[in-house]
Design a protein around this nucleic acid. Structure first.
Lengths: 208, 208
DNA sequence: CCTATATGGTACTGAATAGTACCAAGTCAA
DNA sequence: TTGACTTGGTACTATTCAGTACCATATAGG
């Protein structure tokens, strides 16, 4: 009764999403024609309309796919080793954070959400919840544990987490978003992170 | 010989730019037809083509107009009173910074530049130079003077200026850009700024 | 009043493209 | 093999809109 599928629909669907994702981010929504997408996926125009209803629906699917990508590959180290060397730990996490935040994929993704934020606040909100909000929360959890262990003294770990991350970003993210070049280099990143950690600890370490 | 102008061309030009600026920011470039612009300015299509060559030229003119707006109304207090109360001074400046950075006009403008950054890095670079870069520089100058007077001890005023401003922004700007709502309230702003200034000074004040 | 110039307004054209219809070819079950 | 269904591919339609041409009107100078 149920017609057997000649192809796995999920594969096809995902392939369209992947190509569309690439083209939307390169050229923008309006400048990406369905022709352009189909020329890379092969297949018929009807695939798009069957799967996504219309172009707007495809766009939605792409954006939601991006959101789940953010969540899945989530830029935040979930586990840390809790060594005795808090400073090195923070530096390592800081480098990871910063590298991820300035990576082309993250920058491009953020740009997309910001670009459509006026018209689609729902997408922006979902992306913020899946991205930055998770980042803050995870780091806060880490700080909470450190405080519990007595390695750090912080009155408000939530605020401290945000400060640390914001200082870490510095203006590099803004530059990346606006100019396409964060101006970051591996060497610069290393010294920058060290400086931030120093400042952060200088205020956060228990006076001894 | 020189034909007298029935209207001042500059006025007309600026009027078109203003209307286009509004519509571009509301609907985006592609979704704004020249019809829509002309229906608000009156006059002929030819005005646009005479002044700006084509739609792309109009867009460029709008973006450059935005850049000079940023510079002119520049969000940074140029003069400060240099009272004895550094803390209050920083708090006042901080509130001004933050209010401006989260104002609809600034958020919308940043969005526009970020949205086109992929294709028009030149615009993004110019906007960054006219906006954030100036902000950092002005605040650095202020800190330099404070250090010279011995009110603050800072090894690197440039870094300190960026940190202060970044901490000030917190994630409010990101939220504003992505979700359209920074979540900021006057009360929250006041306590937030106070907290930031406290942290900043706690690390920057000379030990006495 | 009359001519030249500038400008408001409109009509037209050509190109791009979203969305639909349809056909042809391939695949699976019986 | 056959028939039902699926899918690749193309042709077509309708709409939007940038860019151009043109007409009509108004103003200034003589």
């Amino acid at each position: 009764m149920a017609a057997s599928q000649r192809r796995v629909p999920e594969e096809r669907r995902q392939q369209i999403i992947d190509v569309a994702k690439k083209l939307f981010s390169e050229r923008g929504y309006s400048k990406t024609s369905l022709e352009a997408i189909l020329s890379q996926t092969g297949g018929s125009r009807r695939d798009i309309y069957d799967f996504f209803k219309d172009k707007q629906g495809l766009f939605d699917a792409v954006m939601h796919d991006l959101i789940s990508t953010i969540v899945t590959g989530s830029q935040v180290p979930k586990e840390t080793e809790f060594t005795d060397d808090v400073q090195s730990e923070l530096e390592r996490m800081g480098e990871t954070f910063l590298t991820n935040m300035l990576s082309p994929i993250v920058v491009t993704t953020m740009r997309q959400f910001i670009a459509v934020a006026t018209e689609r606040q729902d997408l922006g909100k979902a992306a913020y919840q899946a991205g930055p909000a998770v980042l803050y929360e995870r780091f806060k959890t880490y700080l909470d544990e450190r405080v519990r262990r007595g390695d750090l003294e912080l009155q408000d770990t939530g605020t401290a987490a945000r400060m640390f991350i914001e200082m870490l970003k510095g203006d590099y993210q803004t530059r990346a978003l606006m100019t396409g070049d964060s101006g970051m280099t591996p060497e610069l990143r290393k010294t920058h992170v060290q400086e931030i950690v120093r400042i952060f600890l200088y205020g956060a370490l228990p006076r001894s």
